[in-house]
Amino acid sequence: MSRWGLTIPLTGVPLTAHRELVEQLPDLGYTDAWTAETAGTDAFTPLVLASQWAPQLRLGTAIVPVYTRGPGLLAMQAATVAELAPGRFVLGIGASSPVIVSNWNAASFEEPFARSRDTLRFLRSALAGEKVTEKYETFAVSKFRLERPADPPPSIMLAALRPGMLRLAAREADGAITNWLAASDVPQVRSVVGPDVELAARIFVCPTEDAEAARGLGRMLISSYLTVPVYAAFHDWLGRGEALAPMHEAWAAGDRQKANQVIPDAVVDELVIHGSVESCREQVQSYVDNGLTTPIIALLPTGGDPFEQVRGLAPR
């Protein structure tokens, strides 16, 4: 069964003001509410609220960085939300980016593949209630045991872009979470993880028929994200390296304005959904049709009523 998710909280909407909408999501056809963690809300608190507002929803983090909390604290927070939403919480973890990890959180961004793998393995044991004493490649834990392990333990999904991390997600996690891809890219990613693994993706949706406004916002987002080395490598693998090369050259030269200008319309239109609400909903569905299990809508601000837009984007 395909799922249908929404990223919360919505931009510009106070966290407590989400109750009215979140309570309606299951009746609208949404199955999931997912959070992110950059420099806004933390990933867990909105899900604590949602667990009480809409007990039918599956809740997920997409994603929590593996560097910005100690392994034990990460397990504690995951177990807490899992206790509030028994069998309905998915812990999505990932390497994040050097900006978030090092520049903003004073942690060392080293060996992202190994750190993600080691954190995943630790969490598997810890969230099962085991006492963990283990020397992993990237950290060591001695005699850690959760005082309140959740029953059942939460699922764990791994943020993954390229084949190595995608294969790790398929092999050791309960699914893969990806980001910044077009509907036409889904089969390439699916071919790596296999047919039976849950594949989730955050999809940026800008419901406006002002194409130039949507593309302007999309360009700013694309130049901010896809110049990060891991995303640049992801899009090289997907086949957009040549189309994005002028953006990378301008960005490296320090010309942010030019970097935005040289992103082709075709690339923006592939990566940022825009148009009428009905058209946007159909474009989200195209990801599902191409093999995505769980679309996670990230609503971009347009000046319209975001609650009405979320209602309009509900699955049909």
Rank of each mutant, 00 (worst) to 15 (best):
V277R: 11
E278C: 03
L299I: 10
S224E: 10
V228Q: 12
H248K: 12
V272M: 06
R281K: 10
F234P: 00
E282C: 04
V268W: 02
A232G: 11
S224I: 00
P246C: 06
G254L: 10
V284H: 12
L299S: 05
V288N: 11
N290G: 06
Q283E: 15
L300R: 06
P264C: 06
Y287N: 08
D255H: 06
V267W: 00
S286M: 07
F234W: 05
V262M: 11
I296K: 04
D255Y: 12
E270W: 01
V262Q: 10
W237H: 05
D269H: 08
A250V: 04
W237Y: 14
A243R: 00
P295Q: 09
A233P: 04
H248W: 12
M247A: 08
H274G: 06
H274Y: 14
D255Q: 12
A298E: 10
Q261E: 15
P301H: 14
R256K: 13
A232F: 00
D236I: 00
A245P: 03
L300K: 09
V277G: 09
R256L: 13
T294N: 15
I297G: 07
R281H: 08
P229F: 07
V267I: 14
E242P: 06
Y231K: 11
H274R: 13
H248C: 00
E282I: 01
A250D: 02
I297R: 12
A253P: 05
H235N: 09
D255G: 11
L244G: 01
Q257G: 09
K258V: 02
I297F: 05
W251E: 03
W237F: 13
A259V: 03
V262N: 06
T227F: 01
L238T: 02
Y287A: 04
V272C: 09
V284P: 04
D269L: 09
V288Y: 08
L300P: 01
V272Y: 00
P301K: 10
H248G: 03
Q261W: 08
T294S: 15
L238S: 02
M247W: 03
A259D: 04
N290S: 13
I263K: 05
Q285M: 13
Q283K: 15
G275F: 05
W251D: 04
V262F: 06
I297T: 08
Q285E: 15
A233D: 15
P264H: 04
A233L: 10
F234E: 00
E249R: 15
Y287W: 07
A266Y: 05
Y287P: 07
A233I: 01
K258G: 02
C280D: 08
E282N: 12
G241T: 06
S286G: 09
E249V: 11
A232V: 07
H248M: 08
W251S: 04
V277H: 06
Y225D: 08
V262R: 10
R240P: 00
D289T: 15
L238Q: 01
E249C: 09
V228E: 07
H274V: 02
A250Q: 05
G239A: 03
R256W: 12
V288F: 07
L244K: 02
S224H: 12
L300I: 14
